[in-house]
């Protein structure tokens, strides 16, 4: 009997604690948007800033919208918890940035409309359903690799990714096929925690380092680059060099544009349209940025082709 009392008491305490952890529930007449983005990735931060700015400018006068932002570490449990918190808060709509966050919210199958942005090749993860739409991107890794090879011969390529993020894994798989086809060696550097970065062998850089669109890797990009201090590799990425760590070539699609498109979709949903009736978009405006300043420090290179093709050259 005494034990039963204890169980009841602790159950009540746990329930109370859970309720306290939940984000504030929406008040009447206010629309609440839940946002899930992984970590402090600059790419998603810029995307969300553009989203917020566009949303505010597009909302009808008098319409109140409040956001609840979740920034979990991109492991499945943390992402799933973030999704559940938003569902429990009874948000009207969930905006997700990146593939892992999107998949985590889809898996909860809550029936709440989901608008995604920053998802790499959304078709590949079957980001489809009556409640889902959004704006994704696809970078042709073969193109980035081709531009890299016009700069210098590549015998071995290292790729930094995270097995915690499926989009990052897909990019590695694409790269593996590509490098195999072209007889180039590939070294994989898997980063799941900050400890993994400390354990990277600085000599593993190869002829170039390929940074995937991993939220973990891009959140800790300063730490990754610091490993190679003194033995600085040629770094290329499918994310823009927002942290200005010295990527030589970046081939990417604008985070701002994805944020703006997601905001426009959210406005349509708030006006009563069903997500299934809003066509998902795949961004096409690829930008090729060439960091000539960094490239010059590499010595004997031939950057004419890249200068001609780049949409922006950093001098």
């Amino acid at each position: 009997m005494k034990r039963a009392k204890h169980i009841t008491f602790f159950s009540l305490l746990l329930s109370l604690a859970c309720l306290c952890c939940l984000p504030t529930v929406a008040s009447a007449g206010e629309t609440v948007i839940g946002v899930v983005m992984t970590g402090n990735t600059p790419y998603y931060t810029v995307m969300h800033d553009a989203f917020s700015k566009t949303l505010n400018s597009m909302l009808p006068a008098g319409k109140k919208v409040r956001s609840i932002i979740q920034k979990p570490f991109p492991d499945p449990i943390a992402l799933s918890n973030a999704a559940r918190k938003l569902i429990a808060a009874d948000v009207d709509l969930i905006v997700t940035y990146g593939s892992p966050a999107t998949l985590a919210v889809i898996n909860e199958d809550s029936g709440i409309p989901i608008i995604y942005a920053g998802v790499y090749d959304p078709e590949a993860i079957h980001a489809k359903g009556p409640e889902i739409t959004g704006c994704g991107y696809k970078v042709h890794l073969s193109s980035l690799f081709r531009h890299l090879r016009t700069l210098k011969p590549i015998a071995t390529l290292s790729v930094v990714y995270s097995t915690l993020e499926e989009d990052s894994v897909r990019q590695v798989n694409e790269l593996r096929a590509l490098t195999k086809e072209q007889g180039v060696g590939l070294t994989q550097i898997n980063v799941k925690s900050i400890r993994d970065i400390k354990n990277i062998d600085p000599k593993v850089g190869g002829d170039a380092l390929f940074v995937t669109g991993s939220a973990i890797v891009n959140s800790w990009i300063d730490e990754v680059m610091a490993v190679f201090k003194g033995n600085r590799p040629t770094v290329v990425s499918i994310f823009p060099d927002l942290a200005e760590v010295g990527f030589i070539i970046t081939l990417f699609q604008s985070p701002e544009e994805q944020g703006e498109k997601a905001a426009a979709m959210v406005v349509r949903v708030l006006q009563g349209e069903q997500p299934k009736n809003i066509k998902p978009e795949l961004l096409k405006n690829t930008e090729l940025v060439f960091n000539l300043k960094e490239a010059r420090s590499m010595g004997d290179i031939n950057p004419i082709n890249l200068i001609a093709e780049a949409t922006r050259v950093i001098k």
């Binding site: 696809k138 970078v139 042709h140 690829t286």
Partner: peptide
């Protein structure tokens, strides 16, 4: 050549 790279790059 730039037209070729524009399509390859996805521009």
């Amino acid at each position: 050549a730039s037209a070729i790279f524009a399509v390859l790059d996805g521009k």
